[in-house]
Amino acid sequence: MSGEILIFVLFVFVLSMMLGLELISKVPATLHTPLMSGSNAISGITIVGALLAASASESDTFTIVLGTLAVACATINVIGGYLVTDRMLSMFKKKEPKEKP
């Protein structure tokens, strides 16, 4: 990696952190658990790297084991994270207007 590329990726990193801080600080406390499981699902983005790892062309057994495990772990994060977040969010309901019997 050249110094130039490092600067570039650091740039991207810092900006996305700032954006994250800005976005997340406005999420109300009510939604903090879904936020956490949801961002957990997003951090399963490692799946992109895992897919590349699992499909390396000159693969020996070690590579295959590492890659497949990585895909499995990241998929747990992605599928599990999104599903459980959706399950939680589906329970959040607004008060129905005039629910007096």
Binding site: L15, L19, G20, L21, M36, S43, G49, L52
Partner: peptide, 21 residues
């Protein structure tokens, strides 16, 4: 490591979220 922007952006967002919480 992979010089992959989508991982960096997304990881940064999640990192920020955890820091705030």
């Amino acid at each position: 490591v992979l010089q992959n922007n989508i991982l960096i952006v997304t990881g940064g967002l999640v990192g920020a979220s955890g820091i705030i919480l």
